[in-house]
Design a protein around this nucleic acid. Structure first.
Lengths: 239, 239
DNA sequence: GGATAAATACTAGTATACAAGTGGTCGGAC
DNA sequence: GTCCGACCACTTGTATACTAGTATTTATCC
């Protein structure tokens, strides 16, 4: 798993109290979320606050905080007295997340297409070039970060920064699926191409085109679900 | 404030350990959220984990959990070492919440208008009648609950139950404004009328009409902002 | 009386101990 | 060999004590 982290709080050793540490909770949340999204903590896997705390070099307290937020994201299920489990993929939850994501991102991208200017387009273009480089290197990790950033840019272009955090948390299930689908060959270039089509519509101040391209792109991951389910049946909830 | 609550955990007295209590966190979250929404905890007011815990008869631990979630909702601001404050109303946050709410609810109501059947319409009708009774009695508290339920029904009619919790949390700021606006006379009947128009469009399987009515209704609260700001300038963030 | 430094009270973040409940294992009875 | 009950290990939820940092108050000096 991961190493002990520089955080506020009492350290096991007394070797120098370094002031001004950030609270551990948000960091732990992001780290655990990443492990779940990348299926390093696999769906159905049991987590233990005590064990996670030991491995990450903190007490249970900030672990609980992180797990609480992950529970809000429906990425973990907490069963009192029994344990905490990485949530299995539920088709219903996936459909819900897809609905929410489409509602938020497609509404945002329409506004983005109206408001786009040279500076924002330059930002998107830079991201797309970086995506291409990651795609050329078949670097899935960095590509997924850039994918996320691309979508974030689109949302931010709407002028409503709060959209992204809401969207980000609501689409957690989809990100897991996306990551599992990225293992498949020749997938990254297709994704980059789709992103380019969206950016072109935004640049041309075409809300309808942007929305259509984005919706098509967002629905792409759903087409992979049966294949993913075949490869990883235990990742999915029992019917 | 509120009374001590029946919860799991060690009680100050040893008078009978009653098993099977629900965790306190969710209850505390809802209770504090309600107090904030109703402006009993006023914008800018300082909260103390220790004091809240004392008043509510629990330790700081579940209070921290509830405050953490309220922070996620942007209803409180946590300043380490200094204190926790009820968030003031920020016009930018209001605009963001409005955007998200419209995206989610207007998308959902379009689907609801397609899927509506007799049973769901009966449910909405029952809620509307209850709203009228509350309006006749000028009972703001019960009306607001019914208002929320009405909107929840609309979201649930989309077939995506996860929309409501996401929407509910994202629109926290708006609910505060709505509550402040409800103090104004003759407001409730106008709200009920708007709800009726939305329900009629849903019944007539008219997605465009439903969306338009709902959007108009949702934007109504924004028109009250200048007046609310005049009455309660200290509730608002400094520019 | 005003300015400055030290002391104090308070805070959130965290670690640790305690309590209630669950599930698994083991031993005894049939 | 199977079933049942007791016991134990483990869990999450919670309370309490500790830590680092901030703001206010108090004491001292000019």
């Amino acid at each position: 798993m991961v190493e002990p982290i520089p955080i506020r709080g009492r350290e096991a050793s007394d070797a120098g109290r370094r002031p001004g540490r950030a609270p551990a909770g948000p960091y732990l949340y992001a780290a655990l979320r990443d492990l779940i999204v990348r299926a390093e903590l696999t769906p159905g896997e049991r987590l233990s606050e005590a064990e996670l705390g030991e491995r990450l070099g903190v007490s249970r307290t900030p672990i609980r905080e992180a797990l609480g937020r992950l529970r809000d994201d429906r990425l973990v299920e907490v069963r009192p007295q029994i344990g905490t489990f990485v949530a299995r993929i539920s088709p219903a939850a996936v459909a819900d997340a897809q609905f929410i994501r489409e509602a938020l991102e497609c509404t945002a991208v329409r506004v983005a297409a109206e408001l786009a200017d040279e500076e924002s387009m330059a930002q998107l273009e830079e991201n797309l070039r970086a995506q291409e480089r990651s795609s050329d290197r078949a670097d899935i990790d960095s590509w997924q970060l850039l994918d996320d950033t691309f979508h974030r840019h689109l949302c931010d272009l709407s002028g409503h920064p709060a959209v992204w955090p809401v969207n980000e948390r609501a689409k957690s299930h989809l990100i897991r699926l996306r990551r599992l689908s990225l293992s498949m060959p020749d997938y990254l270039p297709t994704m980059v191409e789709a992103h380019r089509a969206i950016a072109a519509a935004v640049e041309q101040h075409d809300p309808d085109g942007a929305e259509e391209s984005l919706r098509e792109h967002l629905r792409d991951v759903l087409r992979e679900v049966p294949r993913i389910r075949e490869q990883h049946p235990d990742y999915f909830e029992e019917p």
